[in-house]
Design a protein around this nucleic acid. Sequence first.
DNA 1: TACCGCTATACCGTATCACCAAGTAGCGGA
DNA 2: TCCGCTACTTGGTGATACGGTATAGCGGTA
Lengths: 108, 108
Amino acid sequence: MDDLTEMLKGTLEGCVLEIIGSEETYGYAITRRLNELGFTDVIEGTVYTILLRLERNGLVQVTKRPSGVGPPRKFYALNDAGREELAKFWTKWQYLSSRINRLKEGGR
Amino acid sequence: MDDLTEMLKGTLEGCVLEIIGSEETYGYAITRRLNELGFTDVIEGTVYTILLRLERNGLVQVTKRPSGVGPPRKFYALNDAGREELAKFWTKWQYLSSRINRLKEGGR
DNA sequence: TACCGCTATACCGTATCACCAAGTAGCGGA
DNA sequence: TCCGCTACTTGGTGATACGGTATAGCGGTA
């Protein structure tokens, strides 16, 4: 699949929220998860900028834990604001994708 | 619906391509069409920047015609490169939306 | 010991895009 | 004459994903 960069704008952050919401996890693992979900070209740097943004915006709770196989990991979990933001994301996605699919089907 | 700006990145241009592909038309009318399709907050300025980009990238054929009710209109039609780009857009949209919906359904 | 590879995070710069504001301009009606 | 609708252009802004580099812990191996 060629470049999805522009299309991912605004949706990738939501995907990261969803992953964190389903399980407390950390940046490196989130990247691997995205890759296996079909977001094959997403790299660590991109995910970390999103995570720092989520933290800065107060949507996540962060816990640092030692790893045993490398440097310590920063685990992320959604707080109430994060869950609310995630719900809003899915509402927007639902809205947008329905409009676009309607347009695709000959848009009326 | 609150702000869809970020989510529209990469998809709005595709929507404009689709509209032009279905009928030769001009900027002002495209904006009205998008509005009635549910992209309620999209304004003229945004559409014109997309149209200029499409022209610059050689995806459209442009014809200026007098209007009778105002300044002349610039009508846009897809050329071969534009039709190819449109096909690519729908392929990417299909790919991305299927991955995101899978993630939404509990991502496997 | 030295090096490599995997894990793991941070930071800085870049490109792209949708958006916004202001300007120009044609036309018809009050 | 002014206003409103139509219609396009241009310059600047903010948000986002991405790329590259740096730092660092750990285990294996030559």
